[in-house]
Design a protein around this nucleic acid. Structure first.
Length: 577
DNA sequence: GCCGTTTTCGGCCCGACTGTTTTCAGTCG
């Protein structure tokens, strides 16, 4: 039974870093905690597992985690929290940490408000701001108070449902609007969006423009903009009507590459590369790579990497999780591209809960250049989706034969999304399953089983020799449902052992497997199927979110089931049975 | 607090913007 998730351990480190900042501690000690928090948060393996199997020594192998932080992780796992927290909280109540979640308020201000006015919660802060009491603090005047009130407003409304699939189209619309102004030579979405992270904090847009002032004026007057937070010569920050922040950075075209690199991040990646720069007597910033006062690179990102004798590193993997080391050894993965995808293996029709006919879905897939598509409607037990009976499934198979004869240029594979029953058996008997090309297995009921039971249930289903792909392996929905409790490492190992593929469901609400699990699956030699789970033709375009997530998981073309040509795919599927 | 092609001490990425100041600390990314 898992007690402490990586994110929970990371939260302690974030909190400690803020509390140390209030104490005016050595800023490098503070940064150590921040770095550790970031590392732990995105670490591909379970930190608690590492501790349980390899102990303190195992923890110390994690970059940025030394002896002291390893001990603290041990305390967190053993006692629920690190001892240092107790000591830190004697001087600063927990409410101060919450206050620092408000934009523009950091540890220093929170502490000042607490020491002078005994403010230790967001509510008290708001009262003091509105009553004018805050003005008695040194260095606080009307403007600052206005900003604090705005920040609290935003904090209260803060929606956490900013997901890649929602934000990317929205950001692209802003870029289109900026393009129409004809004031920018080049425009590029950067930040976590460009790195295709599943959740997005804010939108970062980079522009090259000969008239920065005109462009920023145009930007702050866009219809999507609600409020201007900061507006300078090169950097403008606004609050959008949807509650997100959007930053526009304008540079000279000659610095576009280095600015794109800087603005894309991740922060940890940038820090690492800048450290490497320092060691080589170079300096890297958003304006270029400099040797003394001489600029030696900056026009393109390729040029920037080349200045460090490195190949181009794709944005998706710029997370300081080994990409710079891999690049130095010329061992970067050749990430899967959308043009590598030969077909979509998880598609619904109006036989169950899809919106349209098999033929229409197939023709839409053909337009995308696919060679095949698998129709995988639900099985009988998934009643909410109008699951098919055996008889209905057999009828559907006959219709697919007919359509395959009728339309050319795309092959429709016969499939089913077969429910995994609570006992791990499948919803259709083997003599039916063996007539299908693709058997997708998935959990749609009894989400609340304990971890051991759920893991056993899924592994049993993986062991059925007709199972092709385990769909959305953790069942999470980004805006509404946590993953069910399952030991994903055991699932991955079982998939490797049985030769079953795991799905990376590209639906924007799912992205399941996630990036970290993809990387783990690859390390275990498991094939990934990147599918859209389309219920309408337009959903087929969700593929790009799956490709982005796969890229973050270092997935290559050779790791992806539906990058295989039809002939090879069918040969592989039959080989398993 | 971490780390080592500067290796057990002495470094630790770099810059923009704000609000308040007259030179800068705090915050952010």
């Amino acid at each position: 039974m898992k007690l402490m998730e990586n994110t929970a351990i990371a939260k302690f480190f974030w909190d400690i870093s803020k509390l140390l900042e209030m104490k005016d501690e050595n800023r490098f000690r503070i940064r150590s905690y921040q770095k550790a928090a970031q590392t732990v948060e995105s670490y591909p393996e379970d930190i608690e597992d590492i501790y349980r199997t390899k102990g303190i020594k195992g923890l110390e192998e994690i970059p940025g985690i030394g002896e002291s932080l390893s001990r603290k992780i041990e305390e967190i796992i053993k006692r629920g929290k690190p001892l240092i927290m107790k000591e830190l909280y004697t001087k600063t109540p927990p409410g101060l940490l919450e206050m620092t979640d408000i934009r523009g308020i950091g540890p220093k201000f929170a502490l000042q408000a607490y020491k002078n006015l005994n403010i230790s919660s967001v509510d008290q802060l708001e009262k003091a701001a509105r009553s004018g009491k805050l003005k008695t603090l040194e260095g606080v005047k009307d403007k600052k108070i206005g900003n604090i009130i705005k920040g609290i407003d935003l904090y209260r409304k803060k929606s956490s449902s900013f997901y890649l699939g929602k934000v990317l189209p929205f950001a692209e619309a802003i870029v289109n609007d900026l393009e129409r102004s004809k004031l920018a030579g080049r425009l590029l979405i950067c930040g976590s969006l460009r790195r295709m992270k599943e959740t997005i904090g804010d939108i970062d847009i980079l522009a090259a423009s000969p008239s920065p002032k005109k462009l920023t004026d145009y930007f702050v007057n866009l219809k999507q903009v609600k409020d201007v937070i900061a507006k300078g010569n090169t950097k403008t920050s606004v609050l959008l009507k949807n509650g997100m922040n959007c930053d526009l950075r304008v540079v000279d075209g000659r610095s576009f590459g280095s600015a794109a690199h800087y603005f894309t991040g991740s922060k940890q990646h940038n820090i690492k590369l800048r450290t490497i720069a320092g060691k080589r007597g170079l300096k890297l910033n958003e304006y270029g790579v400099f040797s003394g006062n001489k600029k030696i690179a900056g026009k393109t990102e390729e040029e920037v990497f080349k200045a460090f004798k490195l190949p181009y590193i794709p944005p998706e993997i710029r997370e300081d999780t080994g990409e710079l080391e891999a690049a130095a050894k010329n061992k970067l993965p050749d990430l899967v591209k959308i043009s590598d995808i030969r077909g979509d293996l998880h598609v619904h029709s109006n036989y169950t809960d899809g919106s349209t006919t098999i033929e229409e879905m197939a023709l839409s897939a053909k337009k995308l250049g696919y060679e095949y598509i698998a129709i995988t409607d639900h099985s009988a037990s998934t009643r909410v989706a109008g699951g098919l009976s055996i008889k209905e499934l057999l009828n559907q198979m006959k219709e697919i034969d007919k359509i395959n004869k009728k339309i050319k240029g795309i092959r429709i594979l016969k499939g089913s999304e077969v429910d995994i029953r609570p006992d791990g058996s499948l919803d259709f008997p083997d003599e039916i399953l063996k007539q299908l090309d693709i058997v997708i297995i998935s959990v749609h009921s009894n989400f609340n089983m304990d971890e051991a039971a759920m893991t056993k249930r899924i592994i049993k289903a993986l062991e059925n020799k007709y199972s092709t792909i385990l769909a959305h392996p953790t069942g999470r929905l980004l805006s509404s449902r946590d993953p069910y409790r399952v030991d994903i490492e055991k699932i991955i190992k079982a998939a490797a052992r049985t030769g079953t593929a795991l799905e990376l469901n590209a639906h924007p609400e799912r992205l399941d497997l996630n990036d970290v699990h993809c990387k783990l699956a690859k390390q275990n030699g498991v094939m990934i199927a990147i599918n859209t789970d389309s219920h309408a033709p337009v959903h087929l375009e969700y593929m790009r979110y799956g490709i982005g997530t796969a890229g973050r998981g270092w997935i290559e073309k050779k790791d992806v089931l539906n990058c295989l040509w039809l002939k090879m795919l069918l040969r592989g599927l039959n080989g398993r049975r």
